[in-house]
């Protein structure tokens, strides 16, 4: 991994010839001005949200590689949107809406190749005394989620993994709250049935 200073130097070096060739068509200050937030605010927001968003993308797409790519793309588009946000919730909703749309587009373009999100190499990285139980549960959830439609996965994830209220879920997925409730109910029954088919002890 790059340290920040090293990375900045590397990028500055990479940009230098481009400046001389293009006659400095676009100054970096101009680009920075287009972003919705300054660097410190962005980094703080990214640190708070990146892991959660990655988990969401990994489950919605079922493809770890796609989640990696979409994560960076989502944050880039979020920055480029140039919108002023009223609150942290508003900002998060916007980021998740962008990520959801990107995942939908990726699926349409067939760049998503569902596979096991958690691989054997990850087992050592999962901390905690009951990591074996967590990984079993993770495998069950992965199998069950793979049998749902992507939109169902997204709404279930936001409702139960993220604990978001219906209004926020509807906003993130571009649905009306009234339409969300029956869809969520059906998806919940479906996933509960799939999970119970494997193991009925998770509700404890």
């Amino acid at each position: 991994m790059f340290r920040d200073a090293t990375l900045r130097d590397a990028i500055a070096a990479a940009l230098a010839p481009a400046d001389s060739e293009s006659g400095s068509l676009v100054e970096s200050q101009d680009v920075r001005a287009d972003f919705a937030m300054d660097e410190d605010s962005f980094r703080s927001f990214y640190d708070r949200t990146a892991r959660g968003l990655w988990a969401y993308l990994a489950r919605v797409t079922g493809d770890r590689q796609a989640a990696d790519d979409l994560l960076q793309d989502a944050f880039y588009r979020f920055l480029r949107a140039g919108t002023e946000y009223e609150s942290e919730a508003h900002r998060r909703n916007s980021l998740y809406r962008i990520a959801t749309n990107l995942a939908r587009d990726a699926r349409r373009r067939s760049v998503v190749r569902p596979d096991a999100v958690v691989s054997g190499e990850d087992i050592e990285r999962v901390a905690g005394a009951d990591s074996a139980g967590s990984l079993d549960l993770n495998a069950d959830v992965e199998r069950a989620m793979s049998r749902l439609r992507p939109n169902e996965r997204a709404m279930l994830w936001l409702a139960y993994a993220e604990g978001e209220p219906h209004v926020e879920i509807a906003d993130r997925l571009g649905l009306k709250v009234g339409s969300l409730k029956p869809l969520l109910f059906r998806a919940r029954r479906k996933l509960a049935g799939l999970l119970r088919g494997k193991d009925s002890d998770h509700a404890r």
């Binding site: 920040d4 990655w54 967590s134 990984l135 549960l137 993770n138 992965e142 994830w157 993994a161 919940r188």
Partner: peptide
């Protein structure tokens, strides 16, 4: 059932996630 399973799954995924550094 779903909340317990999905929240635990989320924690596992968050622990294996390796997003690039914010500065990068």
């Amino acid at each position: 059932l779903l909340a317990v399973a999905l929240r635990e799954d989320r924690e596992v995924l968050k622990s294996i996630a390796a997003p690039p550094e914010s500065g990068r």
